[in-house]
Design a protein around this nucleic acid. Structure first.
Lengths: 142, 142
DNA sequence: CTTGAACCTACAGCCGCTGTAGACCCTATA
DNA sequence: TATAGGGTCTACAGCGGCTGTAGGTTCAAG
């Protein structure tokens, strides 16, 4: 029987995060001691490890929920699992592409700025005048 | 004199976002009509455009605040501006590196899974057993 | 003068946690 | 068996950066 702290340590999760996963229904409600403390078994530990690993790979909690549901029906086709992973890969690729564009623009800005004073700073000029900017960026974030 | 809606249209910002920027002190409190509606001038428009452009380049609101403060003292050295941009570039590069690792891992997972049934699905196996995974990922997100 | 689009404030919600306060429990040692 | 102190409990607020809603007011065109 594992306390929540042990679970946390074993999976590299914060205690509050585990409680949060329980709250949103990603982790099951575990048994309790007489005093009301959570006690877990190996199944729950595995589930939490699965969740954490999927998080590390960038899957959203919603996607993880889907994967966990799918893995509960072992006889079904795994095409849906593939689709979830494929979707995740596409998202990651899109983020990389966007960040690459930002990286290039930032590098250009930095390399062009040889000014001393703020008044002549190319970086601020580029930020002020969108026209100076080569890239036409998508949405901010990521 | 520009209404908030015009400001929004000109800069591709949502009206609420502009009010939010005002709330957190990134945009100044503008003048008002007798009826209490915000009216802006060109200076505010430029400032908002600056903010949006910097956001598109991935700068945090805190970094943007810093850049705006710096651009208010045109006689100072622009070394600090460079430092902010440099920091941003480093962050972008770090995110790219992390996402690249995820991309590779996801591709590997997908290419290895030739199973039909969920029970044999490599993707789920990799997620279950961290050992199967090559990369040792950092923090989730980005 | 009327209409209806735009604007106002205030607040809740998104994601995925993280931190806090104040109380309670569990276990090891004296 | 009493106590100390670390772990755990609930409940809620806060992060970043917005976005959406409700319910009301104002502005400008016709």
């Amino acid at each position: 029987m594992l306390s929540i702290g042990i679970m946390a340590k074993r999976t590299g999760t914060k205690v509050q995060t585990i409680r949060y996963y329980e709250q949103i229904g990603l982790m099951p409600e575990p048994g309790r001691t007489e005093g009301g403390q959570r006690r877990y078994g190996g199944v729950e530990l595995d589930r939490l490890a699965f969740i954490r690993h999927a998080r590390e790979l960038g899957f959203s909690l919603e996607a993880i929920r889907e994967l966990l549901d799918l893995s509960d029906s072992p006889e079904r086709s795994c095409a849906q699992v593939d689709a979830v992973a494929q979707r995740q890969l596409k998202e990651v690729e899109a983020r990389i592409a966007r960040l690459e564009a930002l990286r290039i623009e930032l590098q250009r800005m930095l390399s062009e700025c040889n000014a001393d004073r703020v008044a002549d700073c190319r970086i601020l000029q580029v930020l002020r005048d969108h026209e100076e900017c080569l890239a036409d960026h998508g949405k901010p974030g990521n």
